[in-house]
Structures are given as structure tokens and as C-alpha cells.
């Protein structure tokens, strides 16, 4: 039986990977993928603890997160396409309309 700490460790590594990806990569799509990695890190946590605590709530929560992640990905991609058409840019740095 794999101990719960192993799951948490994997989850933490995945989360930090995603976080670093979001912070340092410039490409939209990579940023979006990093976000997905972070979400799935959270999912691993949820499922692991659900199993550990013998409760279904965590698994249900994980299903919700997957569904919402799908929606989020769809919206994110849509935004990327719109921005790409308008500014011909896939680089996050170039989108700075909200700057003062």
C-alpha cells in the first residue's frame, strides 16, 4: 500500500511544476497547459485523501474539478484564438492593454 505522503509528494511536485510553468513560460498555450497540470495536482490530492479517509466526497469533488477544467480550457482557448486573430500574438507579454 502506497502511503498517503507519496501521493501528496507527487501532487506537490506536479503543482510546483505547473506553477513555475505559468510564471515563466511566455506562450499562451503552455501557460494554459500548466494551469491544467496544477488542477490535476489538486485532483490527485483530492482522490488520495478520499481514499485515505474512506469518503466519496473527495472523488466527487475531483470529478467536478475535471468538468470545470474542461470548461476553463475551452474558454481559455477561445480567448487565445480571439487574441491571436486580433493581435497576431501568442505571447503573454504582448497582451498589456490593462497597463496604466
Amino acid at each position: 500500500m502506497v502511503p498517503i505522503s507519496a501521493y501528496v509528494t507527487v501532487s506537490a511536485i506536479l503543482f510546483v511544476t505547473g506553477l513555475v510553468g505559468v510564471l515563466i513560460r511566455r506562450n499562451f498555450i503552455i501557460v494554459l497547459m500548466s494551469v491544467e497540470i496544477m488542477l490535476n495536482a489538486a485532483n490527485i490530492n483530492l482522490v488520495a485523501f478520499a481514499n485515505h479517509l474512506d469518503s466519496l466526497a473527495g472523488q466527487v469533488m475531483a470529478l467536478f474539478v475535471i468538468a470545470i477544467a474542461a470548461g476553463e480550457a475551452a474558454v481559455g482557448l477561445a480567448i487565445i484564438i480571439v487574441v491571436f486573430r486580433g493581435k497576431i500574438a501568442t505571447n503573454v507579454d504582448q497582451i498589456n492593454l490593462l497597463k496604466w
Binding site: 510564471l23 507579454d93 490593462l98
Partner: peptide
Amino acid sequence: LRRLQTGLVHHYAAILV
């Protein structure tokens, strides 16, 4: 304060983190 608003998503994300 307005110097904080750089317009770069990374900066915001970094502050968030």
C-alpha cells in the same frame, strides 16, 4: 501604486503566488 500594474500577467501571477 500604479507601478504595480505592469500589464504583465506573470507579474500578477507572481504576486498571487
